[in-house]
Design a protein around this nucleic acid. Structure first.
Lengths: 332, 332
DNA sequence: ATGACATATGTCAACGATGACATCGAATAC
DNA sequence: GTATTCGATGTCATCGTTGACATATGTCAT
């Protein structure tokens, strides 16, 4: 900036004024400054600008478990789309579902003085340490899963209700033994909520809960094995509810590999090729882009000074009927 | 930092020394400083640190077309994994395949003084403007597609060879009329290369090239329509080559919706549920994580002072045979 | 005892930008 | 014709941190 100033024959302050459309500047000076800026290829140093008096970095930090997972990728894209309009940049880190990594990412973001944080908590993480930041007024929004040990804004899917509707759909097709294929660890918030929804549906229909019909796996192959274990039971389920996208894929794989077309299946979270599967996969779809948008808007309103009480936003889910959930229960 | 210093009764410089393990510091002082740091919850301000003497931001900027696409999501995750070990943070922006947005993202990253750039170019973008930065020594690596109007490091898939192998696989199963479903715009580097590979395979097998067998669509539904148009020809193809993941999904959908199980299909780029499709989808798999790692390592070596000539890395592809490519050609 | 040297800490300036306040001439007001 | 205001620009200090250099003690060899 000093170079530009020297080139034009003014002070850095005048250049600053031109670049920020601030205060009165003679038209001719403005033009000469702009010319020099172009000539020297000057670009303002955002780091220096942001460093001034307590100012924060014009960026928001986002922590997600995994970037390759389209659910979280879509979340990241949704957040970026909203904040970009405000001139904010997105800084991302993936925690690999590791609480320690999540914490170190958050620490890095805080050290960078980001303007806000959006966090998808990992299993087992604890957010007590963020209390001071929250008190200091830093906007923090939790996404997909609520914070632990801290009261703060959060945006989650209608997990319980969605799962209940999905399972009810299976029951409506005559199934009385519905298996549950979930995630590990079982302590995960989403898994817990969806499991509750599963039980809700059972009891609403007057069906007994059978612990033997619940199995888990934390990746696609593990979920496939869990599915096979359920089908190998003496009194096996005639329908399955898969509580997340990996579990769905695992169940689909297991059914496809074993050629079982007589088992009904409803998955939680939509898949890109769900329609092309045989049978097409019925799912309870979430709205990752919508959740991201809600979270980002919430962050922006907090940045604008909204000091109201921390709130939870429930983002609705939607049952998409495609065929796999409509496989009828076998006659007994 | 001043607060910590005051608390302990030393100067900021001493605190700085403790935090950076620099110079001699009395053990007792070190401990008292650390205690004060914990007590006050002090966190160093990275922006101020990075601002010193020409230093760059300890972050690298990544521009990808779309975060929701697992291919690019995996790329982002791969890059982050490598650079994190070096204490670098990832700043991401998505260009939505829009050259102007890509440019403005790059400009933002430059203003932030990122330590390096990794760019997946959009269709139609021009990178001439980055010449000055390159000359100034900023590491810039292009990923998946080469730069335009600029010589710089780039990491791309073995598109042409991979496509050739995929199409040859179809020809080996007796197909003489192989359709090509590609992306729009046709000017896209990857589409062009894969198209060349397609033609290579045809001529190696002594088959004629028929312009009528080439169609395109730039999203899943458009690709599905293109597929249907090809199948509706008077002399239709008996096999299809889909030149990217969206085209593959479109083709799969079109075949599944129209119940055509007699058409062979090979896709470029693997899909999560490829194995669960009916028939399971044969693909030429790319290695997004591998590409990301190569690009990130390249960036790091440039940051370490590697001033050698710009180079291109070709990342191999792999044919994964699953069934859809083995549908035999009908007898004539 | 005296310099040479290491150890432990301090002082100061600088990175790039911008708020607060100052200056100076010209235009307007009375 | 002097006072007031405004327009255009400059001066200075500051944000948080760290390099370069300085100072102050203590240790040791001669």
């Amino acid at each position: 900036m000093t170079d530009v100033a020297r080139e034009v024959g003014v002070t850095a302050k005048t250049v600053s004024r031109v670049l920020n459309d601030e205060g009165p500047v003679a038209v001719e000076t403005r033009e000469r400054v702009m010319a020099a800026v172009r000539k020297l290829g000057y670009q303002p140093n955002l780091m220096a600008r942001n460093m001034r008096v307590g100012a924060r970095d014009a960026a928001i930090g986002l922590v997600i478990p995994e970037m390759g997972n389209p659910f979280f990728g879509t979340v990241a894209g949704g957040v970026e789309g909203v904040i970009r309009e405000r001139g904010l940049t997105l800084i991302v880190g993936s925690s690999s579902e590791n609480a320690e990594l999540e914490h170190s990412l958050i620490a890095t973001f805080l050290a960078r003085r980001v303007s806000a944080l959006i966090v998808v908590p990992s299993a087992g993480s604890d957010h007590r340490r963020l209390r001071a930041e929250r008190v200091a007024g830093l906007p923090i929004v939790f996404l997909d899963r609520p914070p632990v040990g801290l009261t703060a804004d959060n945006v989650v899917s209608a997990n319980r209700q969605g799962a209940q509707i999905g399972v009810a759909h299976l029951i409506a097709h005559g199934h009385r033994r519905v298996g549950f294929v979930g995630d590990l660890p079982a302590a995960l918030y989403t898994r817990r909520e969806r499991f509750q929804g599963y039980r809700d549906a059972l009891s609403l229909a007057g069906l007994p809960f059978d612990r033997a019909l619940v199995d888990s796996g934390h990746d696609q192959e593990a979920a496939a094995r869990a599915t096979l274990r359920l089908l190998a039971l003496d009194d096996p389920p005639t329908a399955l509810f898969a509580a997340n996208n990996l579990a769905s894929m695992g169940a689909v794989l297991a059914l496809s590999r074993s050629g079982r077309r007589d088992v009904a299946l409803v998955g939680f979270d939509d898949l890109p090729l769900a329609e092309a599967l045989d049978p097409p996969l019925t799912v309870v779809a979430q709205d990752p882009a919508g959740m991201a948008a809600v979270a980002a808007e919430l962050v922006l309103s907090r940045m604008d000074g909204d000091r109201s009480k921390a709130r939870r936003s429930l983002v609705p889910t939607r049952l998409i009927v495609r065929g796999s959930g409509e496989v009828p229960a076998p006659r007994t």
